[in-house]
């Protein structure tokens, strides 16, 4: 059954790609400029979501019957969850030692 009101602006591949690229870029900018390690972790999650949107957009365009793109996005979501667990555990370890999660105070090792 066709929808009663056809969408005014059908969502095309371009919309998905632009959203994905925007999320990825915002996340990248955040990850490179922020100094709080939790915020950096969140920025990286935003980047991963940008990648997910890109995958799903491509998958819908390329091969509606084959689900590789969606499956990839699901795997990324799972790995991102594991990554958050590992990252927060490491951040807690650092917090125990110096009561701060600022990455620029982590200067025990000089670049």
């Amino acid at each position: 059954m066709p929808p009663a009101f056809p969408p005014l602006y059908p969502i095309t591949l371009q919309h998905g790609l632009i959203l994905g690229a925007a999320l990825f870029s915002i996340g990248l900018a955040g990850a490179l400029t922020k100094r709080n390690s939790i915020v950096i972790l969140m920025a990286i999650e935003v980047m991963l979501n940008g990648v997910n949107v890109t995958f799903v957009a491509f998958a819908r365009q390329l091969e509606p019957a084959v689900l590789t793109g969606q499956v990839f996005a699901l795997f990324i979501i799972t790995v991102a969850a594991a990554e958050a667990a590992v990252g927060l555990a490491l951040i807690i370890a650092i917090y125990h030692l110096r009561h701060s999660v600022q990455i620029d105070e982590a200067n025990e090792l000089q670049g």
Partner: peptide
Amino acid sequence: AEAGLKFFLLNALSSAVLLYGIALLYG
């Protein structure tokens, strides 16, 4: 502890960049 956190954050960043490349390749 700092070595672990630095490795983790930079690795996660590089993985995200790699994934975007993979997404484009898939597209």
